[in-house]
Write a protein that binds this DNA or RNA. Structure first.
Length: 423
RNA sequence: GGAGGGAUGGCCGAGUGGCUUAAGGCAACUGACUUGAAAUCAGUCGUGGCCGCAAGGUCACCGGGGGUUCGAAUCCCUCUCCCUCCGCCA
């Protein structure tokens, strides 16, 4: 949610942001019209309400029955007018909310212009592309051959795009999750275990609703939604709270499964475990003071990079362009790891500064230590790496000529003595 | 799932139709007294909208939404959450 004052005072800036994001700027004009009408009515109706307040008080003091009756009649008339205005204001505010709810955040000035993901900018590549003295296999061959990845049974019990990790495959993923959570704990993030189902208000707060309802799983009977990312419950933790400045920054990490209904075209990118309706992820999330969010974004990027470095994976850092940054984001870094089997870069992490966008929707403020007016906090989110893709990278990078997988050293503490996954 | 009881400011807690612009207490902050602190005294002490350069004015908010009324924290309907008991249950 943008500040209505900002839209009112700098509509051209908002229009430009929308067109930079390849969106229609027309809603800005609708908002301006609704806002002007709303304020005009408010000034009128408030005069009436003030009159009603004093009038009602006079009635309570009026001893003469006839005079009392006259006054009540007059006030009844005022009441009708108030009700009519109130109704109109309510309608305007509802439309204002629904239009404003689909306006994305303003891209940061440093976010490069670009029409879509093809214009994202590679900032740097860390590590060398690994060389193999054999033809590296793709994870969808490696996994089943080792008996740690079972596509057929996933399809049998649930359907297309679902798979089962078996034995050391499941354990390897659990090791990755534990490794990331422990690393983020050391980096200063407080671990959270949250519900995986949330109510609509929580999704709205994080910016997922109303715009992305199509991508979410919803239980109609209980009116609960499955989380598409831990970012949603983590944002919700402090909904409708006023924090003290000394509490900030609040840094959280959480593991959750993520559920996404996105319509995926059959035949394209369907193979393997790269993209599914259910995947696991460890997330980082920060609530901080506005003046700190710039620096926190860089810190969080470093923390995500450390995850890759620890695993010994070659990766590159991209800066997303205006046409590709997320709905609530002002600036976003993506981290992609190299998958030598697939021969492609896999997006495993996305780190964004949402500034006060989510905080407005979630109504999360803080009280400055000097006692000044409350202000909205800034929020940042970043994947500590998405699981199936990281798993792909580990399998494909650590494969050996005989088809076995060497376990990365940082994962050994959770592998129960297993150092190599063999057939 | 069934029966009953609740939800008031940071916290506790009064308040069942109009001198309530929500009593009182605690906590916090400011000042006075004090060498300093404690105690005491005085004051301040919620969030947001609208108008205004400002000072200030005004409106709304007593879990959410709706209704009755000239007037609602208070009455009615409804939803959510919490507590007690019963049932079921990993």
């Amino acid at each position: 949610m943008l500040d209505i004052n900002l839209i009112r005072e700098q509509p051209d800036r908002v229009r430009k942001a929308l067109s930079d994001r390849q969106m229609d700027p027309a809603p800005v004009d609708r908002i301006l019209a609704l806002d002007a009408r709303r304020r005009a009515i408010l000034t009128e109706v408030e005069v009436l309400k003030a009159r009603r307040n004093t009038g009602s008080k006079e009635i309570s003091l009026e001893k003469d029955a006839a005079a009392r009756k006259t006054k009540i009649e007059a006030m009844r008339e005022v009441g009708f007018n108030i009700a009519a205005f109130d109704k109109e204001v309510a309608e305007i505010e509802e439309e204002l909310r629904s239009v404003a709810a689909i306006i994305p955040n303003l891209p940061d000035a440093r976010t490069p212009y670009g029409k879509d993901d093809s214009e994202n900018v590679v900032l740097r590549t860390v590590g060398q592309l690994p060389k193999f003295d054999f033809e590296p296999k793709i994870h969808w061959d490696l996994g089943p051959e080792l008996g740690i990845l079972d596509f057929e049974r996933g399809v049998k019990i649930t359907g297309s795009r679902f798979y089962v990790l078996t034995g050391l495959g499941a354990r390897l993923q659990r090791a990755l999750i534990a490794y990331m959570l422990d690393l983020h704990n050391r980096q200063g993030y407080l671990e959270q275990y949250t519900p995986f189902m949330v109510k609509a208000a929580t999704l709205y707060a994080a910016g997922q609703l109303p715009k992305f309802a199509d991508n979410l799983y919803h239980d109609a009977e209980e009116d609960l939604w499955l989380v598409p990312t831990a970012e949603v419950p983590l944002t919700g933790l402090h909904m409708d709270e006023i924090l003290e400045e000394k509490q900030l920054p609040l840094q959280y990490t959480a593991y959750t499964p993520c559920f996404r209904r996105e319509k995926m075209s059959a035949g394209r990118e369907v193979r393997g475990i790269k993209r599914g309706h259910q995947f696991d992820k460890v997330e980082m999330y920060v609530f901080c003071k506005p003046e700190e969010s710039d620096a926190r974004l860089e810190k969080m990027r470093e923390h995500a990079e450390a995850t890759c470095t620890g695993l010994g994976l070659t990766y590159r850092v991209k800066q997303l362009c205006t046409g590709d940054i997320g709905f609530g984001a002002t600036m976003t870094y993506d981290i992609e790891v190299w998958a030598p089997g697939l021969q492609e870069w896999l997006e495993v992490s996305s780190i964004s500064n949402d500034t006060d966008f989510q905080a407005r929707r979630a109504n999360i403020k803080y009280r400055p230590a000097d006692g000044g007016r409350t202000r909205f906090v800034h929020t940042l989110n970043g994947s500590g790496l998405g699981m199936p893709r990281t798993l792909i990278a580990v399998l494909e990078n650590y494969q050996q000529a005989d088809g076995s997988i060497k376990i990365p050293e940082v994962l050994l503490p959770w592998m129960g003595g297993v150092e190599i996954i063999r057939q």
